[in-house]
């Protein structure tokens, strides 16, 4: 290793433990029951929630709890080579793992025989889209007023040029040595999404995991701020009307 951890500067100018610039907004779509947008570096992802609503078809109804449907999808123009609009195997897998993470937070038992639809659209992709998607989707669920045990927030860590780094960008995803996307419920301290590919020793894995946790806690703050500022705005509108 040529440079120490402190000195190592990533191709996009970030330090090893630095997130890309990020912002989260909520209430972006009028028609949806809840919605949110996240920008994380060049990632631009929107999420909309419809429901709880009556579930169709009837024979699939669950009498104990609501059914959560989730679609993660990348727009054809979101990548530098056109992506076919047809859901790929990757998108189907990611829809599944995102759904299974969100299911742990949503109080599905509050809405038997109903369904809740979560639609995630990646408008521009630049690495770590799955964890940014889950962060936005969780804000959209909260915006829809759906009762939850906790927020869900995602972040990634990885390994590039022998360094463990936070928030894997596009080049780092393609040329890096490892990628570790996680999502947690930050107050309950539970892992609800965990995937990894590449190669990490056990001690590198621990370092990467702890870094990703740290990043997730930062993004959690942004989630809360987005929801708080929407509530404040609503308050201001009401005051103005009075």
């Amino acid at each position: 290793m040529s440079k120490s951890k402190e000195e190592y500067i990533r191709r996009d100018g970030r330090k090893v433990d630095e997130l890309r610039p990020y912002s989260i907004r909520t209430g972006i779509f009028k028609n949806a029951d809840g919605s949110a947008e996240i920008r994380l570096g060049g990632n631009w992802i929107v999420a909309a929630v419809y429901g709880p609503k009556e579930h169709f078809p009837k024979f699939q109804i669950s009498q104990d709890e609501a059914i959560l449907n989730c679609r993660y999808h990348m727009a054809p123009y979101s990548t530098s080579e056109r992506k076919s609009p047809k859901p790929s195997r990757r998108e189907i897998e990611l829809s599944k793992v995102i759904k299974s993470a969100l299911e742990k937070a949503v109080l599905l038992e509050a809405f038997p025989e109903m369904s809740i639809d979560v639609y995630i659209e990646v408008l521009q992709a630049e690495g770590s889209t799955r964890v940014a998607s889950i962060t936005a989707a969780s804000v959209a669920l909260a915006d829809a007023g759906i009762p939850m045990r906790d927020m869900v927030v995602g972040c990634s860590a990885g390994k590039v040029d022998g360094h463990i780094i936070l928030d894997v960008g596009e080049y780092e995803d393609k040329e890096g040595e490892a990628d570790l996307p996680i999502a947690i419920m930050p107050n309950l301290k539970k892992i609800v999404l965990l995937q990894m590919d590449g190669k990490l020793t056990h001690s590198e894995f621990r370092e990467a995991f702890e870094l990703a946790l740290k990043g997730a806690m930062q993004l959690y703050e942004a989630q809360v701020n987005a929801l708080v500022s929407k509530v404040k705005e609503m308050g201001e509108i009401e005051e103005a009307e009075e």
């Binding site: 299974s100 892992i191 965990l194 995937q195 590919d197 990490l200 056990h202 894995f205 995991f209």
Partner: peptide, 30 residues
């Protein structure tokens, strides 16, 4: 949780197939 190792004991793939884990549970499982 599924975890794949190389012959040199590196972790090379991981997937939480279902459910939720405490942070310490993850390391006990590893």
């Amino acid at each position: 949780l599924s975890v794949t190792h190389t012959k040199n004991d590196e972790i090379c793939a991981m997937q939480l197939l279902r459910g939720e884990l405490d942070y310490n549970q993850l390391f006990e499982i590893l």
